[in-house]
Design a protein around this nucleic acid. Sequence first.
DNA 1: ATAATAACCTGAGGGC
DNA 2: TGCCCTCAGGTTATTA
Length: 269
Amino acid sequence: MPELPEVEIIRRAILPYVIGKKIEHVSVRSLKLRWEVSSEIGNLGGATIEQVERRGKYLLFGLPAGTMIIHLGMSGHLSLVPQSSPYGKHDHLDFILEGDKVLRFSDPRKFGAVIFTEDDPLRHELLSGLGPEPLSPDFNGGYLYRETRSSARAIKLFIMDGKKVAGVGNIYASESLFRAGIAPARPALSLNENECARLAAGITETLTDAIQQGEKWLQTVDQKTLPAYFHVDTAIYGHDGAPCLQCGTPIEKYILGQRSTYSCPRCQS
DNA sequence: ATAATAACCTGAGGGC
DNA sequence: TGCCCTCAGGTTATTA
């Protein structure tokens, strides 16, 4: 279920435990994820993890011979466990690191992916089409206005399209639109410049706030084993029927593009 | 070319 | 307790 903030928090959390660490060996217990686990992954023993970066919801592990790309899908998770820790049904990969730590990839629904590429990962077919990072200067009201001119689809679906902007998922899409005061079903091209500016700011602020919440949560987690995700404090997602925080009108829930959508009928138009 | 939908997979929770 | 149904914070392949 991780979106950009959750992936970013995982990245920051594991950073001190994996940077500069050698992978002793890799246990691949399940090959069938969203795509088959690259054959190179099982042979990463001896490689040192030089860096861990993020692009959208993808984690990029920089290794001497290339890059391991990890996506967590809907139910994926990374944890740091002792070497003695027994693996469960959904613990598909273990990266045994020098020292006592194991970086463990778990994913009940298997929508995640673990891919290796020796080329520039940003040129990889999974990443090359991604839109700008929402927390970079490339993403702003002007960009959103230009890109929406030719799109009649609902604005919520538009901002969830990774080709338009990377990393915005179902929860933060609803949250951002609420913050911007824009109805999720509005055709993208119906937004004017001012509304696009508000929405871009809404997305940026929503994601930044969530990352800050995640940072706080991290400090409360004892050994940073990352047993779970932090719980995001949402203003509208999951609050159907409850009074809107701004005006008290009951929050509505409906389906848009096969996904649950929440909005305030009065504050968002 | 763009946009709506079907599909991948498993578990949790509610109603009966 | 068990069965059936719906839903779940993602993304691509297929269809229209």
